[in-house]
Design a binder for these strands. Structure first.
Length: 424
DNA sequence: TCTGGGGTCCTAGGACCC
DNA sequence: TCTGGGGTCCTAGGACCC
């Protein structure tokens, strides 16, 4: 059996752990730049007039009228809370696949406790006790069924956040009570197509002729169909695969026209993705740079462009990657526009210990790799970004994200620890 | 004024090989 | 009249996920 453990309204729950005064009150979390609402706890979701993924300026009044607390996203806090949840889950099984920041598949096949209903409740209680984060637990034979069981666990209050599919009756009960769109892997397009031919519930889908599913929804559809019928097609993968691409692109805090500021932001993003690249011990053979204006603006002239810069030989050196990125940026930058976003993408990786050197590698490239190593050592010892390239500059405030409502990084910064009462 | 960010997998079709 | 057959690699675009 496989358990899918998913944190309830994860970002909002993280905020509430440190704000007991907000218990049972509506809380939402905003996207980068405080742009949209991206997460809401159940009290906020109950206020159905507050839609997710809406620009915040459009719903600000609603939030105030309903006394909704809102926070800028605080990924430092959420990552650390996620780590705590995942570590708690590892006590229940050596095989845990971290599927996303707030959910994991847990292999229970070696569990000695065969009362899965009870085990599910214990998992839930333990995570909540250790971390303060409420979770839902779905347990079934396949990943797709446990995903669905998790959804059902949370949907029906009597399930108390735990649902186990261990009999045919419970499998049918699950499938008949959920819609096609609830199935993991069936999105908007397929839902529309299925509805047209009167496939409404998850059970309708699981009972369709398999050859139709295979033909119209490819191998992905076929696997889902089989998994809903208790056949394992998606294996649990406890060791994360190396990423095939690493990118970042963030909107500026305000529109930029000054090339050197865009260059500084771009260089900063390169240093971020290059760090991640080195952490997974890969080297990239291509870097993509893109630049765009605000697509929502009615009045500003629009421009967007991207360019792929090929590296002579694979590298993960911040210096080489920055040089390549800025070369690309210079080519696509046009003066006269108000830019909203710049981004970089590293792709076509090779393992860093299998780099095929180029006959024409310059001495400077080898030097830049050595310098990058030294920078990593210094930054690990003295803190992130203590040593950086001069081109990154010191004007981060001019372009960085807006986070006006960020909570303290309670668990990772000494000077932001939670204070319990103050001496007068 | 203000509209998120980071990923994965699959397929068809083109270009190429012997 | 009739113009092979078997394969690989790469890319763009679609669909989906959190």
């Amino acid at each position: 059996m496989i358990a899918l453990v998913d944190c309830n309204s994860f970002y909002a729950s993280c905020e509430q752990v440190f704000r007991p005064d907000l218990q049972n009150k509506p809380v939402i979390v905003l996207s980068n730049n405080d742009g949209c609402a991206i997460a809401a706890n159940k009290h906020a979701k109950a206020l159905t007039e507050i839609p997710m993924f809406q620009p915040i300026f459009k719903i600000k009044n609603l939030l105030d009228e309903n006394n909704v607390s809102y926070f800028s996203s605080n990924y430092t806090l959420y990552s650390d809370m996620s780590r705590r949840v995942m570590n708690t889950l590892r006590a229940f099984s050596p095989l845990v696949e971290e599927y996303s920041i707030d959910e994991s598949f847990v292999d229970l096949s070696h569990s000695t406790d065969l009362d899965f209903q009870n085990l599910g409740s214990i998992i839930k209680k333990t995570v909540e006790k250790n971390t303060g984060i409420p979770v839902g637990v779905g347990i079934a034979k396949t990943k797709s069924l446990s995903k669905l069981a998790n959804k059902f666990a949370k949907k029906i209050p009597e399930n108390n956040d735990v649902y186990v599919v261990d009999t045919e009756e419970k499998r049918r009960n699950l499938l008949i009570n959920l819609k096609v769109k609830d199935i993991w892997g069936i999105g908007k397009k397929h839902t529309e197509r299925l509805q047209k031919i009167n496939i409404i519930t998850a059970l309708d889908f699981a009972e369709m002729p398999l050859d139709w599913v295979r033909k119209e929804m490819t191998i992905i559809g076929e696997r889902l169909w089989r998994e809903l019928n208790n056949e394992i097609c998606l294996e649990l993968n406890p060791i994360p695969d190396a990423k095939q691409g690493i990118g970042t692109a963030k909107s500026f805090g305000k529109k930029l026209t000054d090339y050197t500021l865009i260059e500084e932001a771009c260089s900063f993003y390169v240093s971020e993705v290059a760090d991640l690249l080195r952490q997974q011990k890969s080297a990239a053979t291509e870097i993509e740079v893109f630049l765009q204006t605000n697509q929502f603006s009615q009045s500003d002239p629009q421009y967007k462009n991207k360019i792929i810069v090929k590296l002579y030989s694979p590298t993960n050196s911040t210096i080489s990657l920055t040089k390549a990125a800025l070369k690309g940026l210079r080519e696509i930058y046009l003066p006269g526009y108000r830019y909203k976003k710049v981004g970089v993408n590293l792709t076509h990786f090779v393992p860093e210990n299998e780099i095929q050197a180029s006959l024409f590698d310059e001495k400077t490239k080898i030097e830049s790799e050595e310098i990058t190593k030294v920078m990593d050592i210094l930054n690990n010892k003295f803190g992130k970004n203590k040593v950086k390239l001069a081109v990154v500059g010191t004007r981060e405030k001019e372009w960085s994200l807006i986070k006006e409502h960020r909570s303290p990084r309670f668990t990772t910064q000494w000077d932001e620890l939670l204070t319990i009462g103050k001496a007068e």
